[in-house]
């Protein structure tokens, strides 16, 4: 039995080898991701969670309360837009990760306060780790969430 590879097999091997190298190379060395991508994704998730809470609260609140918190929900929408403008080209986390508003329990005012406070703390902490551009956005978001407590008080 001959062990010499045929010409066809050599050609096939030559054609496959770059792909094999690329595959094994990719699995050993994952492509580095800029730290801002994860920080930005986390901030977007926080903002989306707050928006869902406000929507749930507004749907079941008296009109005066609903009007008050509707303005805050709009500001969280503005935060999402600001995060989309920063770090252009980065993929946005899917909005489907949030449960539908109907499935969210209606938060109390105290729970909204706690959620805003937690978001302010998280944004501020992440602003310490982010690039300058994203840090400035996160710092504004942290300040905004903190100022929302004045409205909710």
């Amino acid at each position: 039995m001959s062990v010499t590879p045929s010409r066809r097999r050599l050609l096939q091997a030559a054609m496959l080898s770059p792909a094999l190298v690329a595959c094994t190379g990719a699995s050993r060395e994952p492509r580095p991701v800029h730290p801002d991508v994860a920080l930005r994704a986390a901030a977007i998730a926080r903002e989306r969670a707050l928006i869902e809470r406000y929507r749930a609260a507004a749907a079941s609140s008296a009109s005066t309360v609903a009007t008050r918190i509707a303005g805050l929900a709009e500001e969280h929408e503005a935060h999402l837009a600001a995060l989309s403008r920063s770090t252009p080209g980065a993929l946005s986390p899917s909005p489907t990760t949030s449960p539908p508003a109907a499935l969210i329990r209606v938060p109390t005012l105290a729970q909204l306060v706690a959620a805003e406070r937690a978001a302010a703390t998280a944004h501020a902490a992440d602003a310490l780790k982010a690039s300058r551009e994203l840090a400035a956005v996160l710092a504004s978001l942290a300040a905004s969430e903190a100022s929302h407590l004045v409205v909710l008080a």
């Binding site: 303005g71 600001a82 956005v137 300040a143 905004s144 100022s147 409205v151």
Partner: peptide, 26 residues
């Protein structure tokens, strides 16, 4: 930034200025 944004909101609220907050302080 957080302190000044909160204080600005407190003064707006006290003065009856609306909206009380701004989306992106600073």
């Amino acid at each position: 930034l957080q302190e000044t944004a909160v204080r600005a909101a407190q003064w707006r609220k006290t003065a009856g200025i609306t909206p009380v907050t701004v989306p992106l302080p600073g």
